[in-house]
Amino acid sequence: MGKVIVVTSGKGGVGKTTSTAALGAALASRGEKVVVVDFDVGLRNLDLVMGAERRVVYDLVNVIQGDAKLPQALIRDKRLDNLFLLPASQTRDKDALTSEGVERVMADLKRYFDWIICDSPAGIERGATLAMRHADMAVVVTNPEVSSVRDSDRIIGLLDSKTLKAENGERMEKYLLLTRYDVNRAERGDMLKVDDVLEILSIPLIGIIPESMDVLRASNIGAPVTLADAKSAPAQAYFDAARRLAGEVLPMTIPGEKRGLFGKIFGRKAA
């Protein structure tokens, strides 16, 4: 049976879709069967980041409403044979998702895949609650700034109360993925430090992704950062996070992109 992971945050623009794609590709490159599912009905983006936007025929809503079979809607990645995408509908709205429908699709996916990674929409409305409802574990994506941390705290509260696991009295596994971390800005006090975020959210950390141009570059060419440039700092951090998700124990490194003196001066000028 596969594991269902929801990638969620509450706040928008913190890197849920990027992280979904990167973690999905990282887990798939370990040889496991992975599907990434876009729950952001009406504002889908995962297909773009996966580079599959021209290959979408059927989507999650079609499958839920019975207009298409699950295998018809699944899109196989061109780079990795065991990585699939289940896209969201761009023309429908979130009311097209039903709890029973999502449950059925998740149960089907669990039989074929090792990992089902659900990209949650921002917010705490229907789309987000349905994305988390059937999950076995959650990756809470947070930026090191106060509004993102508070929204993540709210989402953790919902994960502990509104999911099937919580309603059955079980504990939902929740992991923190800190994204867009800039060690220099954290040192200067412009950003919250890792320890501050961990103290407020008090859930285990599975990775710190550095703020990097590599992420943007990868999105623009339509590839998960872990496939576009596997040697880059954010890709390495995502690979480590994926290994921790799979149960490995690794020492946590706070990524500091070591910039030389010239780079520092240049970087500050540009900022």
Binding site: D153, L158, S202
Partner: peptide
Amino acid sequence: NEPVRSGQ
């Protein structure tokens, strides 16, 4: 036994 989260 657990933190009281935002919104709770």
